[in-house]
C-alpha cells in the first residue's frame, strides 16, 4: 500500500491473483478514512477488477468505479460479478451495484503480454461467448452480444495469441467486452461450472481451465434431446442455435485446430490433472443448471480428454 503524495491517492495491491475473502476483509479494515477518496480506479486483470468491486461492496462505499482492464478475457469491466475464493472454493458475487460506472478499454495493454497469458484470456472470452449463446438464461440481447463476440474471437484469436498485431488485439479486447456483456445477462454454463475446482486444486489459470472441456461440451450439447433438455424454449429452438454456430464454422473439429494453433494443452493427464471425480463432485451447480443439456456424472467425465 502506498500513498500518492500530493494528490492524496492511495495504491492498494495487497492481494494475489484469484483473491480470497480474507484479503478483501483485510482491505476493508486497512483502507480507513474512506472519505479521503473520491473515486475508485481498478487497473489490472480480472482479479484486480473483481477485488475492487468486492471492496466497494463490502465497505459499503458509494464511490464510482473506473475499470481499466489490462488483460482481455473475463470482461469483468462489463459484468456485475466478482469471483472470490473462500477455503479454496469459488464464490461469485452477483450484484447489480458492483458493475463499474466506467470502463476504459485500451488494447495496447495486451500487446507484448506472454503468449500463454494471451491464449488463456482469449479462450476465456471465447468460451464465455459460446456458453452464453447456448445458455438456458440467454435472451435475444445476450445472444446478439455473444454472436458478435464469437465472430470476433474466431477471426482474431490465432493472430492475437501469436503476434503483436494491433488490430487483432483491438478486436479481442472488444470480443472480451462483448462476452462480458453477454454473460452479465445469461451467466455461463458447464465449462465454467467445471473450471473453478480445476483452478483451485491444480492451479490452472481460469481461461485454460475453462477451455479444457469446451470442445467435448460443444459435442455433448449439440446432441441434446427432448429427454435431457433444460431449456424450456424447446428442442427445435436449441437445435437452431447449433445450426447457427455451425454456420459460423464453429464445430468440434474447429477446436482441435484452434488449440494447436494457440499452443494450448487440453490433455488433462499431461497437465497433471488426475482426480476428475473431485472436479465432477465440486462442479458449480448453479452454472451447470444453466447448460442447455442436463449432464449426469458420466457425461461430465466425458468432457475431458486424457
Amino acid at each position: 500500500m502506498y500513498g500518492g503524495g500530493e494528490f492524496n491517492s492511495l495504491y492498494y495491491n495487497n492481494f494475489a491473483c484469484n483473491p480470497n475473502i480474507k484479503e478483501i476483509t483485510e482491505a476493508v479494515k486497512i483502507i480507513q478514512n474512506r472519505g479521503k477518496y473520491d473515486v475508485i480506479i481498478a487497473v489490472g486483470g480480472g482479479s484486480v477488477i473483481d477485488f475492487a468491486k468486492a471492496w466497494r461492496l463490502f465497505s459499503k462505499s458509494d464511490l464510482k468505479l473506473i475499470a481499466i482492464p489490462t488483460t482481455f478475457g473475463t470482461g469483468s469491466e462489463s459484468t456485475q460479478f466478482a469471483v472470490l475464493y473462500k477455503d479454496g472454493k469459488k464464490m461469485s458475487l452477483d450484484e447489480k451495484s458492483i458493475l463499474p460506472e466506467y470502463a476504459v478499454i485500451d488494447s495496447n495493454f495486451a500487446l507484448n503480454s506472454p503468449q500463454y497469458l494471451k491464449a488463456c484470456t482469449a479462450m476465456d472470452a471465447f468460451c464465455q461467448a459460446i456458453e452464453s449463446f447456448w445458455a438456458v438464461n440467454s435472451t435475444t440481447e445476450s445472444m446478439d452480444f455473444a454472436i458478435k463476440s464469437i465472430s470476433l474471437c474466431r477471426d482474431n484469436i490465432i493472430e492475437f495469441v501469436n503476434t503483436n498485431n494491433e488490430t487483432a488485439a483491438e478486436n479481442m479486447a472488444l470480443a472480451s467486452n462483448l462476452a462480458g456483456k453477454a454473460i452479465n445477462i445469461s451467466r455461463t454454463t458447464a465449462s465454467h461450472a467445471l473450471s473453478y475446482s480445476i483452478t483451485t486444486k491444480y492451479g490452472i489459470p481460469h481461461g485454460h481451465a475453462v477451455a479444457l472441456s469446451i470442445k467435448n461440451l460443444y459435442q455433448a450439447n449439440s446432441q441434446v434431446s427432448d429427454f435431457d433438455l433444460l431449456d424450456i424454449r424447446g428442442i427445435d429452438y436449441v437445435k437452431q442455435k447449433f445450426i447457427t454456430l455451425n454456420n459460423l464454422l464453429i464445430n468440434e473439429n474447429y477446436f482441435d485446430t484452434l488449440f494447436d494453433k494457440i499452443h494450448l494443452e487440453t490433455n488433462i493427464s499431461k497437465l497433471g490433472i488426475s482426480d476428475i471425480n473431485y472436479i465432477a463432485n465440486n462442479v458449480n451447480i448453479d452454472r451447470l443448471s444453466n447448460n442447455p443439456r442436463k449432464l449426469d456424472k458420466n457425461l461430465l467425465y466425458s468432457l475431458f480428454n486424457s
Binding site: 494528490f7 480506479i41 476504459v104 472488444l174
Partner: peptide, 25 residues
C-alpha cells in the same frame, strides 16, 4: 482502444475526481 490514460483523464476532469483509491496488480 488507444490512450487509456487520455480517457481516464477525461473522466477525472468531467467528474472532478482528484483523490483516487487505486487497486492494481
Amino acid at each position: 482502444y488507444k490512450g487509456a490514460i487520455n480517457n481516464l483523464s477525461k473522466i477525472m476532469q468531467q467528474e472532478t475526481f482528484h483523490k483516487p483509491l487505486i487497486f492494481c496488480g
